[in-house]
Amino acid sequence: MKTLEMPLKGDVTLNLENLSVSFGGLMALNDVTMSLKPNVWNGLIGPNGAGKTTLLNVLSGFLVPTGGSIHLGDENMTGQSTQNWVERGILRGFQMPRLLEGETVFVNIMLGRHRFLSSGLGAQILRLPQYMADEKRDRDACMEIAERLLLGDVLEEPISNLTFGTRRLVEIARLLAAEPKIALFDEPAAGMDPDLRHELVSILAEIQSAGKITAVLVEHDVDLVRRLCPVSHVLDAGRLIAHGATDEVLGLQQVQQAYFGVDHD
């Protein structure tokens, strides 16, 4: 993959301090403090309604926190627009893949490259050399990612023809096409048939072991979290109740109580 001028490695820490989000009277996130270390994959686990997706929404600019702050290195990211988050290389996926239904797989993946656009509308219409060179670079990058995610044969298919699992792969391809510094996955493997899921997990594992990006992985499947994430954070009712090495965290009694409903007397 052709490298770009901007720094690709997830070499900056994302710090969340006393983060709170309330909807009306309901505290969706309550005083959450955590830090996401560069190139580390973080599991984010907890029961339904614990605030996991809310946290992803805050970390991508879709929600403005009602309290607390977020810093990327020295930069204050609290309340920044989605565009600014994307510009910094922090990208998210969705629980239900959000795709352009009327477009092809290829166009969907290319959308991920939008943040590398440097030409104005005039240059695009006139197809000036700089734009065409960028376009070629982006196309090559997308083809490579598509091949890797087994989408090479469906590039020209419209999204509406695809199965759920393939749609999920397309969204992940779009996310990877954006070359994220920090990637936020919201249950990336949920609802996929076993074969495709197996493929996806091994691709994610490959990316993880390459050690070039930071990730947050919201996931119910504990084995998957164990495999991909050395570190985990546990949310329950909007509060961070535990964090640390994944194996230790999952062994904690309070985590088992909150998460699995297992009661050790």
Binding site: G61, V86, L91, F94, E101, N108, L111, G112, H114, A178
Partner: peptide
């Protein structure tokens, strides 16, 4: 592509920086 994203999925558009 930005127009198509705006039309088909505002979330996809915004989460790609459009």
């Amino acid at each position: 592509r930005a127009m198509a994203a705006t039309r088909d999925s505002e979330l996809a558009a915004r989460s790609s920086g459009v």
